[in-house]
């Protein structure tokens, strides 16, 4: 028997198996279910709004904040320094172009608690271990940081530090979001370019 024909038959058999496989062509979760479950049940995947406020005040460059809301909502108000990746478009392109950014922490937030946690489960499922969620979302941010008010007579040193962070974060937040729309857009665009896909391959 001719080796070439044998080779062809073998390849056709393998091709037939491939044709039957549900190869999605795009992305499938690569982390094993049990491992993913224990990962997402761990509390360390959450950041409180106070922790995020501290990142913003200290201008922590190892943190990337990702806003999952619609561009319209993003334009009205957003956490300073965040980039806009609407949840509906998270999987349209390669999420790696957003999440493989050399940052140690990518923090998702949406208005509430649902979209951000979907995004976290997806990102962790695709093995992006540097992903976290801001618990409570923008609603909790407003509730805690923007509407923070101290009621009482005495303040402890810890409370004072927390309070100062909140006040400064609130100031930055208000200043950035009070910019005229044209300036905001410019800022958003420049951020967008920074998050552009990396090139590679044989060129």
């Amino acid at each position: 028997m001719n080796t070439r024909i044998k080779f062809s038959v073998g390849l056709i058999c393998l091709g037939f198996i491939l044709a039957l496989l549900p190869l999605s062509g795009s992305r499938t979760f690569i982390v094993k279910p049990q491992k993913l479950l224990s990962e997402i049940l761990d509390d360390y995947t959450y950041f409180t709004v106070d922790q995020v406020a501290r990142f913003i005040v200290s201008e922590d460059s190892s943190v990337q904040i990702i806003d999952l809301r619609s561009p319209e909502e993003f334009r009205v108000v957003n956490i300073p320094g965040s980039i806009n990746v609407p949840y509906s478009r998270l999987l349209d392109n390669d999420p790696g172009s957003i999440l493989n950014n050399g940052k140690t922490k990518n923090i998702f937030y949406s208005n509430g608690d649902i979209d951000s946690n979907y995004a976290l489960a997806i990102a962790r499922g695709l093995n992006f271990k540097n992903t976290y969620v801001m618990k409570g979302g923008l609603n909790e941010w407003f509730n805690t940081v923007m509407n923070s008010n101290f009621i009482g007579d005495r303040i402890s040193a810890r409370e004072n530090a927390l309070f100062e962070t909140r006040t400064r974060a609130k100031k930055i937040f208000t200043e950035m979001n009070s910019l005229p729309d044209s300036m905001k857009l410019k800022f958003i665009r420049s951020k967008h370019i920074a998050a552009k896909k990396l090139d590679g391959g044989c060129e």
Binding site: S24, S26, T28, P33, G125
Partner: peptide, 9 residues
């Protein structure tokens, strides 16, 4: 059942 097989999107 020990791994995911489906298209995430």
């Amino acid at each position: 059942l020990n791994h995911f097989k489906n298209d995430a999107k």
